[in-house]
Design a protein around this nucleic acid. Structure first.
Length: 234
DNA sequence: GTTGAGCGTT
């Protein structure tokens, strides 16, 4: 029944997309469909989810067949309590392929890179950039609210993914060990050799005389005797 | 198990 979003976008030619925000992370399309279907013909309900965890991201897209119904749903369902949380319903602003949408309807298709459209719009991300800058300026002791949990977790997850991918290296040729073994990493050897020549104390080492007059020196001092005397043996 | 501004799919 509600296999929306399972086979890709059905037909967004003459549909009006609504963006549902502030909904629960556990709300699914099955929960939204009946709600929105009561106010009009819902063509598709899609909830962007994580690619790996398949977790809901907290918002959904509801496509209506007619703008009037969509508008009605926006007026009626905006602020409706769903699963113990007031959802925010509004017209989608951007399409799946970054098309410009007006009132939920695509009014400007995405310019294909056919070469014809030489006058490609720079399409600057003022939103992200501005937000980032503002966030940077507002940071310091402003770590309140502004849940960027997704971003942080996303990075960590991606890191984990990369690590997993590396660990499960399908072909040994992609393994660094293999590269070094084959001799491709001779540069690494050279670099390592040069780096290994720590006979001459490089000034950029951890022990900077007048670089880290902080507790680092204290720690070193603290660790020096124990490490040198090495009297602490099991 | 958590999270809370946002704009999207095999």
């Amino acid at each position: 029944m509600s296999h929306f979003g399972r086979s890709g976008p059905p037909d967004i030619r003459d549909t009006y997309s609504l963006l549902v925000l502030n909904m629960t992370f556990r709300t699914t399309a099955d929960d939204l469909f009946p709600l929105f279907d009561k106010y009009g013909e819902v063509v598709d309900v899609f909830i962007p989810r994580d690619r790996r965890t398949r977790d809901s991201r907290g918002f959904a897209f509801v496509r209506y067949k007619y703008a009037g119904e969509a508008q009605k749903a926006v007026e009626k369902l905006d602020g409706r309590n769903v699963d113990g949380r007031e959802i925010r319903v509004q017209f989608a602003k951007y399409g799946p392929n970054a098309e410009r949408i007006h009132k939920g309807r695509i009014v400007e298709e995405v310019p294909r890179t056919r070469g014809r459209s030489r006058s490609r719009s720079p399409r600057p991300r003022y939103r992200d950039g501005y937000r980032d800058r503002e966030y940077k300026r507002r940071s310091r002791s402003r770590s309140r609210s502004r849940s960027r949990s997704r971003g942080r977790h996303e990075r960590d997850r991606y890191h984990d993914r990369e690590r997993d991918y590396r660990r499960s290296s399908r072909s040994p040729s992609e393994s660094p060990d293999y590269r070094r073994r084959t001799g491709i990493g001779k540069y690494d050897d050279e670099r390592r050799s040069r780096s290994r020549s720590y006979n001459s104390p490089s000034p950029k080492r951890s022990s900077s005389p007048h670089g880290t007059p902080c507790k680092g020196s204290a720690d070193e001092k603290n660790h020096e005797p124990s490490s040198r005397s090495r009297s602490v043996s099991p």
